[in-house]
């Protein structure tokens, strides 16, 4: 591996900005976030970067590395071509705050619009429930989500069409799926998914699933089953026929 690498990092804020080049020594085993920290400590102390756990568990350091939405802490330099400058940019689907940091507060507002968990009455007299591991596992996949919002960033409905006011994005379709498929939940979110959250905008291109750092099968396991529930209730031709009759 090369012992130096160049990083072309977007510096700026909501009013605009430009790429700036930084060359830094690199060592075996380093990830992109390590290089960014080294640049920050030695060359650009005021550079804005958001991070926490540095182990792929908190989902804070989302950015675009050579144009691909990724976690900086889980992207090893040895997997990148260091003969070329490594291009680092903030996520494009959200407003810029500064440098690599974007304003993701929209996501937190969207979550509040989804009806909360409502369990059935407890199964046992001591107020507890009984669930089988197999039933739990289906939902545990969705609950692996670390809310990095990379799936939101890559989703063309948000990224290109800016439908933030109408569409909740893959992250919150996964969230809704986790609630809808929760073995204990008795709430109904199907109407909201169709009318309020515009699940129909998703045309299952699987871009979100491909960037998920937790390898959640977003499209196939979460979104398509939800679409099926919407279709069953509102677009079933047999039911429509019966309604007319």
């Amino acid at each position: 591996m090369a012992d130096r690498a160049m990083f072309r990092i977007w510096r700026g804020d909501a009013s605009g900005g430009k790429h700036q080049d930084y060359t830094t020594p690199v060592d075996e085993g380093m990830v992109v976030l390590d290089a960014v920290h080294r640049i920050q400590a030695r060359q650009a102390p005021d550079m804005a970067v958001r991070w926490n756990c540095k182990a792929g568990k908190c989902g804070s350091c989302s950015a675009e590395i050579n144009g691909v939405p990724k976690l900086m802490c889980m992207t090893r330099l040895s997997d990148l071509n260091l003969d070329m400058p490594v291009i680092l940019e903030p996520m494009h689907a959200f407003p810029s705050i500064r440098d690599l940091v974007t304003d993701v507060s929209w996501n937190f507002r969207v979550k509040k619009t989804i009806k909360k968990f409502r369990p059935r009455a407890p199964d046992a007299p001591d107020g507890t429930w009984r669930m089988q591991q197999a039933d739990v596992e289906r939902v545990q996949e969705f609950r692996k989500c670390i809310e990095c919002f990379l799936c939101q960033d890559v989703c063309h409905v948000l990224r290109e069409h800016h439908k933030h006011d109408e569409f909740i994005g893959p992250r919150f379709l996964v969230y809704a799926a986790a609630l809808e498929m929760h073995p204990l939940d008795v709430e109904d979110r199907v109407t909201d998914l169709k009318d309020k959250h515009s699940i129909g905008y998703c045309n299952i291109t699987t871009c979100c699933r491909q960037v998920c750092p937790e390898f959640i099968t977003i499209t196939e396991n979460a979104i398509i089953p939800l679409k099926e529930r919407v279709v069953d209730r509102y677009f079933d031709p047999l039911k429509q026929l019966l309604n007319i009759l």
Binding site: P119, G127, W129, R130, M131, V136, Q140, R143, L184, D185
Partner: peptide, 20 residues
């Protein structure tokens, strides 16, 4: 811990369906 389950947490299960 049981209260978390009432708020939606999904812990791994024992064979008889309780929290492992």
């Amino acid at each position: 811990v049981r209260e978390l389950e009432a708020w939606g947490a999904l812990f791994d299960r024992t064979k008889d369906g309780r929290i492992l």
